[in-house]
Design a protein around this nucleic acid. Structure first.
Lengths: 358, 358
DNA sequence: CACCCGGATGTAATCGGTTACAATGCCGCC
DNA sequence: GGCGGCATTGTAACCGATTACATCCGGGTG
């Protein structure tokens, strides 16, 4: 493998347009000189303006091709006062949920010729810094926030800027931000109903942290389903989880170590906790669904891996919708302020009914 | 919740610097006017140039504060011919490995005041487009590629541009790109040795796809360990996986459905396949490690969830190192062309030995 | 033939910074 | 007092596009 190895064949490649070997970057000026038109016309061709005669257009395109011209993003952004970029603030901890959302955002954004700038944040200090930074630098045209930990107060303040903001999985508190949510209530209702339909009597609920929307709404869905079925809510069977794997693991460990009898079934209000429960049971020589049926919520990738029945949150779709909302806001279009996407019950092995792998 | 709800208290917040209520964005011009110095001096203050007298600096900073000035990224990038941004091309499918790497990249990049621009790509067509796009627009100062599917040929061509390129988990073929790898060989060796030490005799290897570096190196590590222990490689116990969950699941399904006896232990050359194996076994009423010991590779998040013994790939660290390499290249510093990071055996439940939860 | 009109193109200001170079002012020293 | 030198500061030319406005040109009309 020598040097010639990566110099030949270039003319056959995707990068073939680049004949600009002599360092300097090619600008519209160069193109205009080469094609004998003004830079204004070159710009018109680049931006597909209709006010260019076909003849000129072709000449300019040829020059662009020949010189290997590529437009400079910064200059363009500066002149147009738009960056064609969406900023996405991503939580530092993620069970896969937000990664999926991000992919959805990307899919849509790319289709609209937008780019993505991401920032992670571990804690709320970081989050604020990052948001402020994006807001400040004029780097992005809109912001999508996936961070549940961010205070309402802060979001409202941030929204005072001219930048459109879209929230994922968090309700709108302000007319200037849009939000994309999932139908937690009916998802939870469906899951609980499913367990009831299968005939389980003692059903535990592994709840989420107080004060988060998801946790609350999902719990409400459970209540609704129980009530409709004429069941009472058994307080002793409500476990105080926090949406992390560890809490499922530890709560189940404690329960089993205390020698308490397992319930017939359990509804963990998210998948990571459900997986924690499973692991604890395995370590105690118990298995799902033999010793207890189990349902999760979200359908993260690993849920499929372990055959966990769960409620699918349309993560990709959330991303797509969020991106759409953001871009609509940027381009001046109207958008629904709050969109709630439907969930779907995915039946797998863990709830103890025969199922077909999809 | 009324309008005043998000207008009061602003002065106490992180965003307090912004008193610029009258739409127009504040520029250096405004600051220079307000503080009675030239824009050059304002710029010097902003960029922490030492050649500004303390008195002036303070005056300018006050004006910046008062006006709520924030520098414009596009203008700055245009003038400096640098974007302080790193582009990251991310594979569309990801078991969590690359997400972790991305976090590592972010951690380091943020600490150096760099930003991240990400693009996903599903297939190699996309990948090429995205890379070319980043290369073209001058949006980024460097590129980190996590895509294994990209052809060497393309990478070499891309590297012809002035942009530094850093490859994740893929060897270097060209002096103009750096690469960050993991020590697959010794990781696999350690895992295999561990199984041998535990006394397992018939050890199956669930291999990776031909032609990928990881698969090859990991396999070589296995061979080395077996050889050292004086074992022969049993071809019948080498399963042709492809690194996806499905392949572990299906190969194990086939094996069990064919009624063949399980080996004593299995080394799946990555975690998702190991999880596929586990799931298939569960569906057949078998369990790990009771019916077969199992080790994976990578230590993705879910591995911990299911108690899978595995070889940890230092994903975060890879990201950090990659970011460092990229930034070094941008700022003209030298960097190691190829860095190989060590792996670590993480012993959990699945290999059938008593373990302590960490 | 003069005039008007509209499509195509060019001119030049503008976006908001950075920075090479020039200018200024102040100091000490001969 | 004059002068070199250093520390500050200012002037103005970029960076590479976009775009409002002006200009030009050819043709249809009265």
């Amino acid at each position: 493998m020598d040097v010639s190895d990566y110099t030949h064949n270039v003319s056959d490649s995707i990068l073939r347009t680049v004949n600009n070997d002599h360092g300097r970057t090619v600008t519209v000026q160069d193109v205009s000189r080469q094609s004998g038109v003004s830079t204004a016309t070159v710009s018109r061709v680049i931006n597909q303006s209709p006010k260019v005669s076909p003849k000129t257009r072709i000449r300019v395109l040829k020059a662009i091709q020949d010189l290997g011209y590529m437009r400079n993003h910064s200059a363009r952004a500066l002149a147009r006062q738009r960056t064609d970029t969406i900023g996405v603030v991503f939580p530092g901890i993620d069970s896969g949920f937000f990664s999926e959302v991000l992919k959805g955002i990307n899919e849509h954004a790319v289709s609209r010729d937008y780019h993505l700038m991401v920032g992670f944040s571990q804690d709320s200090e970081d989050e604020h810094d990052r948001v402020t930074e994006y807001l400040q630098a004029g780097r992005v045209d809109a912001l999508i926030l996936m961070n549940l930990g961010m205070s309402d107060q802060f979001i409202r303040q941030a929204a005072q800027r001219e930048l459109p903001i879209v929230l994922i999985d968090r309700p709108v508190k302000n007319a200037r931000v849009a939000s994309v949510m999932i139908d937690n209530r009916s998802g939870a209702d469906a899951a609980m109903t499913h367990l009831l339909d299968l005939g389980y009597e003692r059903i535990a609920i592994l709840a989420g942290p107080d004060g988060t929307i998801d946790a609350e709404q999902r719990f409400e869905g459970c209540e609704a389903a129980l009530k409709r079925a004429g069941h009472k809510l058994d307080k002793a069977l409500i476990w105080p989880g926090n949406f992390f794997w560890e809490s499922g693991y530890e709560l189940m460990n404690n329960w089993l170590n205390a020698g308490k009898p397992l319930p017939d079934a359990m509804f963990a209000l998210n998948d990571p906790m459900a997986m924690g429960v499973i692991e604890s049971m395995h370590e105690h020589g118990l298995s799902v669904p033999n010793d207890m049926a189990l349902i999760g919520f979200d359908d993260v990738q690993a849920a499929r891996y372990v055959g966990l029945t769960t409620v699918r949150s349309p993560m990709r779709e959330m991303g797509r919708v969020a991106s759409e909302a953001a871009i609509n806001l940027v381009t001046g279009g109207r958008t629904l302020v709050e969109q709630v996407l439907p969930t779907e019950l995915i039946v797998r092995r863990s709830c103890g009914v025969e199922y077909k792998a999809k």
